[in-house]
């Protein structure tokens, strides 16, 4: 179910989120789509010898959940993604449950543009990624 919230109904402070457990399948599908077969993501024996001790998910996989919230929940259909700033804080491991949350920070009413806080946290409540997005919603 895709939301379609009109720009005029957006309010500063509105939030939406999705939670998802990152699976091994997600990581391998993601590697296939973007071509990133870094052994840290797809080779357990290699990853075990790094300080991470096990395979980690691609950072962008978690970011993809954030864009998923923007495009399907807040504001949803017809959202145009203009800008995204990101900081990566800690790795995401296979099996982690990531909650991707967005919040309306600022509305530029004359341009139909919103600044959104974008943040992904793991099952321990630790921030894995944070940043801001600028989006446009024409109607």
């Amino acid at each position: 179910m895709i939301a379609d919230i009109p720009f005029s109904e957006l309010k500063v402070g509105d939030t939406a989120e999705i939670s998802k457990t990152v699976s091994e399948t997600d990581v391998y599908n993601f590697a296939g789509i973007c071509g990133d077969f870094n052994p840290l993501h797809v080779n357990h024996e290699y990853a075990a010898k790094t300080p991470f001790k096990r395979r980690i998910a691609h950072g962008m996989l978690a970011v993809s959940l954030l864009s998923g919230v923007l495009g399907t929940a807040l504001p949803g259909k017809n959202t145009i993604y203009l800008e995204q700033n990101l900081k990566f804080h800690i790795p995401v491991f296979i099996g982690d449950t990531i909650t991707a949350r967005v919040e309306v920070l600022e509305l530029m009413v004359e341009k139909n543009i919103a600044i959104m806080k974008t943040e992904a946290v793991n099952q321990d409540g630790k921030i894995v990624i944070d940043g801001q997005a600028k989006i446009m919603k024409k109607t």
Binding site: F30, I33, C34, G35, D36, N38, H58, G59, M60, V63, S64, L66, S67, G71, Y81, L82, E83, Q84, N85, L86, K87, F88, G131, K134
Partner: peptide, 28 residues
């Protein structure tokens, strides 16, 4: 998807600079 673009870009970056660890990004 904007993040698909960026994911492909990250992968292409790693081909040229193997082992690069991403810290921050700004993109439009």
């Amino acid at each position: 998807h904007g993040m698909l673009l960026y994911s492909v870009l990250c992968s292409a970056l790693l081909k040229n600079i193997p082992g690069a660890i991403q810290l921050e990004h700004q993109m439009m």
